[in-house]
Design a protein around this nucleic acid. Structure first.
Length: 206
DNA sequence: GGAATGATGTACT
DNA sequence: GTACATCATTCCG
């Protein structure tokens, strides 16, 4: 067996391969597949992370999406290969993390909105100055602060085991609910927010 | 060059 | 429920 075919087997049959395939298929398939996956951050030799429980899908056809008006300096990572991190600053204060979807150049991504904390809770509590664990990662700006995700990580490959921020596939979640997205002014009725139904770790509607 | 605008979080009333 | 911090990016003139 050649190295290439061995790699093909790993990608085609492994959980990581299934996640990668879903991300490549469509932004909604990617969003659905990201729910239940674990987001892991390696910071100074310590692992921080949590299981994704809430995401939102944004495609280039969507007036609410940063990619709606085409590629720019800020949103270029949305047009990168599936699994690429798109990190942007929101309201001048908070950094938000997305996962690029579909083929290169399409311009779609999934916003990670909330995690159920799993690793490095002590460090994350300090980073967030929080005594309430429900406030650690329940919001797009909160989780990036907890995991030390900033603009410096924009453009990295989240599917590579060598990356300081990466995705680890989990078990498929059966009870995924679809609701309208939060905090947007356009395309408000589209059901493009995917959550683990009833999870106590979700962000709160505004 | 300048003004408006957020895919938000926190504190306070 | 409402106020406000704070700034990169975008869009307009």
């Amino acid at each position: 067996m050649t190295l290439e075919s061995a790699d093909e087997v790993l990608r085609g049959e492994g959980a990581l391969g299934r996640l990668e395939a879903a991300l490549a298929r469509s932004v909604t398939a990617g969003a659905r597949a990201l729910v239940g996956a674990e987001l892991v951050r390696e910071l100074d030799g310590v692992l921080l992370g949590g299981v994704i429980v809430e995401v939102e899908a944004y495609s280039a056809r969507d007036p609410a999406s940063h990619s709606y008006r085409g590629p720019t300096r800020r949103n270029r990572s949305m047009f990168a290969p599936p699994g690429t991190a798109y990190v942007y600053r929101s309201y001048g204060l908070h950094d938000c993390l997305n996962v690029a979807c579909c083929a290169s150049g399409v311009g779609s991504a999934v916003l990670i909105r909330a995690l159920a904390p799993t690793r490095g809770l002590e460090v994350m509590r300090v980073r967030r100055s929080s005594v309430d664990d429900r406030l650690l990662c329940s919001g797009p700006g909160r989780l990036t602060q907890a995991l030390a995700v900033g603009l410096a990580l924009d453009g990295i490959d989240l599917l590579s085991g060598a990356s300081p921020l990466r995705l680890v596939p989990g078990r498929r979640v059966r009870s995924v609910a679809r609701t309208p997205r939060i905090g947007i002014s356009r395309s408000r009725d589209e059901l493009l927010r995917f959550t683990v139904a009833g999870s106590p770790w979700l962000s709160r509607a505004r």
